[in-house]
Design a protein around this nucleic acid. Structure first.
Length: 803
RNA sequence: GGGAGAUUAGCGCAGUUGGUAGAGUACCUGCCUUACAAGCAGAGGGUCACAGGUUCGAGUCCUGUAUCUCCCACCA
């Protein structure tokens, strides 16, 4: 028997425990069923979880559950991404150790131990939210399997010339002492001062005005630029200019259309490197490379007396000296946007370092990425546009070197004599070249090697999750058979980064897409226009509080709202809607089960018309719901079956109630007919509702249906329509519902109780056969004593009320 | 600055190819109906962001504007 009142927390936790202990969601290696494989994106575990995290995952889980109930064997892992900077910083902070102070292996070991606790919290919350992942399939991107996969990927690409090493200026964070990728940068508004300087022409013919916010870069000034269309300065092109404070140095004036005539003074100094434009000019005009700032943000020896100062202090000193020497003729305070490293908010510098790159940006490759994008099944389709636009604008190869200590090392040693990179053997992976000698000889005969000390960017590893999942490092043939995986889900912000990179790697290694379909979810917004954010800490309700009050089923219900891929706004009202359905499912089921506990399902010889009708009506809702799930529209699917559930309760239960209660009046056969319909329809509804609300549906299944359905969990049953003979009955049944509705309307308008008895009604219709068959049910539900019939257009006339 | 999406009832959202604006919730009116008042029945409520245009007809197509979200670029 079900409890009188549904206890959300207790019941949900009970079944979560059951699912884990019984291995309900375990992937079965030996199964004959077709596999449905999901490349779950491994989350970076840091900070508090908020309801926004649950949003995307629970939507994907609904697709997983739908496929499982289609009879598929689910490969649905939950890994964690923890080989990057956030983990390194977390370990340093929590364990109070400097990464560099201990061997990399040891640091990694400590990291894995520490991260395990965080992973467990995350896993617990995923389980608590009703995710049906197989936790035994998890991985850490810093574990041996992931490292091996990532290193093998690198060696494969490097040996084929797809990965190459080159000296390239790239964004650098002097605080984290690492190069950073373009997409790790964000904008920040900072106050600064625009300094107007007079540069002396080398021939003594005068001065030219240049405005700069970074005067400390003067020692790295390698050229002056004006716009070729600028009539004021055209004549200066080709002349030489003395660098202020460093007057033994002269630089040439160039003309380039990238100079904005209206900006500043219209004359720009190019320093290596102040910004991206400097990088481009340096490359294009083959300028000298003068590095003014070192890895840690201090001035280098080329800066003379400023060497060793932090750049910010050097700036003050330089400005003082410029003022003293009368170079500055104007200073304007400005607020401008600078690129900062998203993790530490430190303004970035451009430094030139030897880095490994992966080729991604030639026109042919771009065409390949576009072709692959077209082969991929996008949900929703409109998201493809973003991908295509990005691919089209791709103009840089992918930098994968990071000058950090913690991470997946490059398995490479450079020959001390000729510099050639020598790679580790695949069977030795994973290796750390800092602690392992290269065994062998370079082609040049040399046996002395310099190990690579850099590690790979975390994306280099998180882009091979399909290869980690399919065990490509150990079994290429087996992996190839499993590729592409069936599905990947992701937030729409990472289509162009994570998704594209994963596509690139799968193409290079296995010549195919990583997945057949990509499902993009929107964001859950905290309030109008405001995203949930770790920085803002703006969750109105904490996740634990929400789970306590409403439970996972309700959170999942809320997550299913709206059209797929769209943002939704968090509001407690939305949770209350889910709570209503939860309550309704419990009460409706409790009522029906009362009449089923002593019933063994057996198809009766004769099924009454209303009972046949509700089963056909269910099949109709079933088809619609499944069609929505096939189109990855969880919101519409949920709404469809929810609508039908309410219909079932408000109409069918009311109609069948009397027959179920009073077999002595309506007959035992009439009761059994209603039992048969109730059994099938309720079970069918629970299965479909269970995709969104797995806990409550399990509770009800276990309470009764399990005895007759064999499967040990409702989530292992398969979806199918009710087996019933084909019959054109839905329209006729709908007419009966309309008759009842008209009588209810009459009573409501006349402010009567629904129990109020009515003397007689007259039903008119062109064909009265079906309605006549339902007479007993209509009378019972509407409290009508007599029904008269007339043959003409459909109409219901309501007679006198019994006083 | 460029690209993509959004803007519809008090609220959070649906609206397929152009043809009288939809459910839920809230509010309101009633009803304790042998499961559920966290329920049931019923009613009201919208210049479809704004301004133009195409069309016999526009929430839907086109152009522009505003606001929000995401992505990219620029920032001397």
């Amino acid at each position: 028997m079900l409890e009188n009142k549904y206890n959300i927390g207790e019941t949900e936790k009970k079944w979560e425990k059951f699912w884990q202990e019984e291995g309900i969601y375990k992937f079965d290696k030996n199964s004959n069923k077709p596999t449905y494989s999901i490349d779950t994106p491994p989350p970076t575990v840091s900070g508090e979880l908020h309801i926004g995290h649950i949003y995307g995952f629970s939507q994907a889980d609904m697709i997983a559950r739908y496929n499982r109930m289609q009879g598929k064997n689910l490969f649905y892992p939950l890994g964690f991404d923890n080989n990057g900077l956030p983990t390194e910083l977390l370990v340093e902070k929590k364990k109070k150790i400097q990464a560099h102070s201990i061997p990399r292996e040891e640091f990694t070991k400590i990291a894995l131990e520490l991260v395990d606790g965080y992973n467990q919290n995350y896993r617990d919350m995923m389980v608590r939210a009703g995710m049906s992942c197989d936790l035994s399939l998890g991985y850490n991107t810093i574990d041996n399997r992931s490292q091996k996969t990532s290193q093998k990927s690198f060696i494969d690409l490097a040996k084929r010339g797809i990965a190459y090493r080159e000296n390239k200026p790239s964004p650098w964070c002097t605080k984290c002492r690492t190069s950073v990728a373009q997409f790790e940068l964000e904008d920040k508004d900072l106050d600064s001062i625009f300094n107007y300087l007079n540069f002396k022409l080398a021939d003594g013919s005068g001065t030219i005005p240049i405005a700069t916010t970074r005067p400390e870069f003067l020692p790295a000034c390698v050229g002056i630029f004006v716009n070729p269309e600028d009539n004021r300065y055209k004549h200066l092109v080709g002349k030489l200019v003395k660098v202020p404070l460093f007057e033994d140095r002269v630089v040439k004036i160039y003309a380039d259309s990238k100079v904005g005539i209206d900006k500043g003074t219209g004359i720009v100094m190019c320093c290596t490197f102040g910004d991206q434009t400097d990088v481009e000019w340096w490359k294009e005009y083959k300028l000298e490379l003068k590095q003014a700032i070192d890895d840690g943000g201090r001035m280098t020896e080329i800066c003379g007396k400023y060497a060793g100062l932090k750049s910010i202090d050097a700036r003050k000193a330089v400005i003082e000296d410029l003022k003293a020497a009368n170079y500055i003729f104007r200073q304007d305070p400005i607020c401008h946007t600078v690129k900062v490293h998203e993790r530490c908010e430190q303004p970035i510098e451009f430094l030139s370092k030897k880095q490994w790159f992966i080729r991604t940006s030639t026109p042919q490759l771009k065409q390949t990425w576009a072709d692959l994008g077209n082969q991929l099944e996008w949900h929703p389709e409109s998201m493809k546009t973003r991908y295509m636009a990005w691919v089209n604008n791709l103009n840089q190869d992918w930098s994968i070197s990071r000058q950090r200590y913690f991470g997946v090392p490059f398995p490479v040693w450079y020959c001390k004599k000729c510099g050639k990179p020598n790679f580790a053997s695949i069977q030795d992976l994973p290796v750390n070249p800092l602690s392992t000698e290269f065994k062998g000889k370079c082609d040049c005969g040399c046996t002395q090697f310099e190990p690579e000390s850099d590690v790979m960017d975390t994306w280099a590893t998180s882009s091979v999750t399909p290869q980690i999942n399919t065990n490509w490092a150990e079994d290429e043939v087996g992996s190839n058979k499993k590729m592409p995986m069936d599905m990947r889900f992701a937030g729409r912000d990472i289509i162009t980064t994570w998704c594209l990179r994963t596509i690139i790697k799968s193409y290079y290694h296995q010549g195919c897409l990583p997945w057949k379909s990509l499902i993009i979810n929107g964001w859950m917004m905290a309030d109008k226009g405001i995203k949930f954010s770790k920085h803002l800490n703006n969750s109105k309700m904490g996740l634990n509080e929400i789970m306590e009050t409403y439970g996972a089923d309700v959170v999942r219900y809320f997550s299913a709202n709206g059209a797929y891929g769209r943002d939704v706004m968090f509001n407690e009202e939305g949770l209350k809607d889910g709570y209503k359905l939860l309550n309704k499912i419990f009460n409706g089921s409790k009522f029906v089960l009362n009449f089923l506990y002593d019933y063994e399902p057996k198809k009766p010889k004769e099924i009454l018309p209303i009972d046949r009708y509700i089963m056909h009506k269910f099949n109709q809702a079933y088809e619609k719901t499944c069609a929505f799930y096939n189109d990855v529209e969880m919101g519409y699917a949920k709404a469809e079956i929810e609508k039908f559930f309410y219909f079932f309760c408000d109409n069918y239960i009311e109609l069948a109630k009397n027959r179920l209660y009073k077999p002595e009046i309506y007959g035992q056969a009439a009761k059994e007919s209603a039992q048969w319909a109730s059994y099938n329809v309720l079970l069918g509804m629970l299965k479909l509702l269970g995709i969104t609300m797995p806990h409550i549906t399990e509770e009800i299944y276990q309470n009764y249906f399990k005895t007759y359905e064999k499967e040990k969990s409702i989530h292992l049953t398969t979806l199918h329509p009710i087996d019933i003979e084909n019959e054109n009955i839905i329209e006729k049944g709908d007419e009966v519902i309309e008759i009842i509705s008209k009588i209810r309307q009459f009573k409501s308008e006349n402010k009567l109780s629904l129990k109020t008895e009515i003397e007689s009604i007259t039903i008119s219709n062109s064909n009265l056969e079906f309605i006549k068959q339902c007479e007993a049910d209509i009378k019972a539900v509407s409290a009508v004593r007599n029904i008269n019939y007339a043959t003409c257009n459909f109409n219901v006339e309501i007679g006198k009320v019994v006083e």
